[in-house]
Design a protein around this nucleic acid. Structure first.
Lengths: 233, 233
DNA sequence: TAGATTGTTAATCGATTAACAATC
DNA sequence: TAGATTGTTAATCGATTAACAATC
């Protein structure tokens, strides 16, 4: 049996399909065509059919997909059938907000250990957990079977924490710190930087104005410093 | 003069270059080759040269780029020369964490108004701001010159808030809510969903195991439900 | 059966990488 | 000048869209 590769672009869409299917299920729909799924997710219908075909064939020509079954298939594929113990590293403003974030729990991700290096935060009680020092991380990762960690530290200590996590056996990192971190082959990192995202928006705003009033000034070398149109996002 | 289009993929990298240049500047570097920038950012050197060429030619063959000058050029291009007033919508756990988030201020984004529809939150003081009801949003957007808003509400009210924001004249949305929102042409939306990101990681973990122990079971139709390899992220 | 919709193939599009002439 | 590194062209790669035969 040939193992078919699922592209990262497709993987990124699977959770979106789950959400769309949930919406449809809540609306009482039992079957959905790729066209209906397209409406619910904003993704093109042919793209959806192709993505789903990677998971094996589940649709019925002339009828569509079984909403509940498709949800199960995708959920199983992503690994949501089981519960994932997650470590939260960094208990600053962002980190503490995440302990109250409902989205993780809804998809079976549970924060089972919290770490911080600040003496002010170590020992704080959070629900039935307690903020722990870095020294306890390796043992906790092993004991609790943690594979996934969320990095919500300051930029300057993120790499250090990442090294500790990887040494301890964690193989997936959700990096919310404002810095690029490097990890060994085989470790997955997703980097989310709110500042990067909001800068893409200010770029959009800036372009809109520049193209609208044509006030693009020449740059230091006599060439215009920034071109573009308003439709880039 | 031909206006050249800057691709979304390139735009997404500009803030990363800024960060890399900041790191290099802090390390005392005054000049940087594309190769050095590649090390600092994790992006390939040819890609970097090509991206920068879109902004106009700033490097010196045989020498490299002037760190400070390149920073200025990119910052100006993104629009960071000015200050951006931002509206924060939704003052739950995530929203309140964002008011304390330093990254925005470092790039000249200022939260100048906070909105929530819960009577429990309306009126709360946050620094020198106060959480305001939806009714006050249109006037505030106009008075404060707000073009960019951050949506940090629950999924079920996100679209409603988005409609109100767009009607009031906001043209860029950073959507942190767990739902797809639709907006009219000309309005930019960036959607960040932490749950989506963490599911990409559990997919990675699941694939690693599936390919490692070859326990991929056939799905409902007799075909395997989920293929892939461990190197997709 | 007729109508609808899938799964997949072929065509298009865009983004990345490699290679190198131009230039300091 | 010789060495280094840019900016850009050509080659590769991957992802999206369009079209349609297969199928319920």
């Amino acid at each position: 049996m040939k193992v078919q590769r699922i592209s990262p672009a497709t993987v990124a869409r699977l959770p979106i399909y789950l959400q769309g299917l949930e919406t449809l299920a809540n609306a009482g729909e039992e079957r959905a065509s790729s066209e209906k799924l397209a409406e619910a997710t904003g993704i093109g219908a042919p793209r959806i059919r192709r993505d789903l075909s990677y998971l094996g064939a589940f649709g019925t020509p002339g009828v569509g997909y079984d909403v509940r079954q498709l949800f199960q298939v995708i959920a199983r594929c992503i690994g949501l059938a089981r519960e994932w113990p997650v470590a939260l590293v960094g208990y600053g403003s962002l980190g503490s907000a995440l302990t109250a974030y409902a989205g993780f729990a809804e998809r079976n991700f549970r924060i089972v250990a919290i770490f911080d290096k600040s003496p002010k935060r170590i020992g704080l009680r959070v629900g039935n957990l307690e903020v722990r020092p870095p020294e306890e991380l390796p043992a906790a990762v092993k004991e609790l079977g943690i594979d996934i960690a969320i990095l919500a530290t300051a930029a300057n200590s993120a790499q250090e924490w990442a090294n500790l996590l990887v040494r301890s056996g964690v193989t997936s990192l959700l990096n919310l710190a404002r810095t690029v971190i490097t990890v060994p082959e085989g470790v997955a990192v997703r980097h989310i930087d709110l500042t990067t995202e909001i800068q893409m928006l200010s770029f959009h705003e800036t372009m809109k104005r520049t193209t609208a009033d044509s006030s693009d000034r020449p740059g230091p070398n006599g060439k215009s410093a920034c071109h573009g149109n308003g439709e880039t996002l």
